[in-house]
Simulated assay, not measured.
Amino acid sequence: MTRYVNCVKLGTSEEGLTSLPFPGTKGQYIYDNVSQKAWKEWISMQTMLINENRLSSFESKAKKMVEEERDKFLFGSGFQVPEGYIPPKI
């Protein structure tokens, strides 16, 4: 059975995630309040941030930056793509 959430990012009722994106209270909050569509958008933005900023996923500074940008993207405002970023042509 499909689960729907009132997505905080999109402001609409959308299909919810099928499982927690990661353990803990933040993972549960995302599961309860973010749609599959918005999460997919975040994963694309996360990949772009990691690549454009040449981040190493095992460094704590990089993890903290990605977490902060995730919260801005999904729940708040202030998310910006890196300066000079040119999206790929499709």
Rank of each mutant, 00 (worst) to 15 (best):
E14Q: 15
K89I: 13
Y4K: 14
K40L: 12
K89L: 13
V66W: 06
K26R: 05
V66K: 02
P23V: 02
Q28H: 08
T25N: 05
K89Q: 14
L10A: 07
L10P: 00
L17V: 11
T25Q: 12
R54S: 08
Q46Y: 06
Y31I: 04
K63V: 15
S77H: 11
P21R: 04
K26S: 04
K89T: 14
Y29E: 13
T47W: 12
G76Q: 14
P82C: 04
I30S: 02
V8H: 06
E41N: 10
V5I: 15
T12D: 07
I43T: 15
A38E: 05
E67L: 08
G27C: 09
V81S: 04
K37Y: 02
S56T: 11
D32H: 12
K61Q: 08
Y4L: 12
I50T: 09
K61S: 15
L17C: 09
R3S: 08
E69V: 00
R70K: 15
A62M: 05
Y4Q: 10
K9S: 14
V34C: 13
K37Q: 13
S19P: 00
L74A: 07
G16Y: 12
T18V: 09
G27E: 05
G76N: 13
S44R: 09
E59N: 10
E14Y: 01
E15H: 07
S60I: 14
S56G: 01
I86L: 12
G11W: 04
